[in-house]
């Protein structure tokens, strides 16, 4: 069994990463299983800290995460690929690398040049950080 971690953020680039896994599974003799992961950024601002309980923040992250995971989950189910989904909170690069380790995934697959062009240009990409931190090979899909 080949277990892949697919990190998705709802962008078309991460859809392409899912498509890549579907294609790869179709051409693979070894059955492919997937862990689908969406990482939510922590809500660090003053207003959030003052006005919103951690429970509501988690409920919010959960709603947002499930919404982003819905399409990739459907796509994988159609392709007959066994898949578990996860929603993490924190620094995306770090959390993706942690999941790759704790779930014993053979590879990380993710889209790059995703949403958040401004943030991406100013701050550098999540993909870069995952490549740096993950204990396994990382496939970047454009």
């Amino acid at each position: 069994m080949l277990t892949l971690l697919i990190a998705v953020d709802g962008s078309e680039y991460s859809d392409r990463a899912v498509d890549y896994v579907v294609r790869r599974a179709a051409g693979s003799r070894e059955p492919v299983a997937a862990h689908l992961l969406n990482v939510q950024l922590p809500l660090a601002g003053v207003n959030v800290k003052l006005f919103i309980s951690p429970e509501s923040q988690q409920a919010y992250h959960r709603d947002e995460g499930l919404a982003i995971l819905a399409r990739p989950r459907e796509r994988l189910a159609q392709a007959g690929i066994a898949c578990e989904h996860h929603i993490g909170v924190g620094d995306p690069g770090q959390v993706i690398a942690d999941y790759a380790r704790s779930k014993g995934c053979a590879e990380v697959v993710m889209g790059t040049h995703g949403r958040g062009f401004l943030a991406g240009t100013v701050l550098g990409s999540v993909a870069q950080k995952v490549v740096h931190l993950a204990p396994v090979p990382v496939v970047l899909v454009k």
């Binding site: 950024l41 922590p42 660090a44 620094d91 943030a119 100013v122 701050l123």
Partner: peptide
């Protein structure tokens, strides 16, 4: 909001 959250997370 997304930009600000990313900024605070990275730096």
């Amino acid at each position: 909001s997304r930009f600000v959250l990313t900024l605070m997370d990275r730096f």
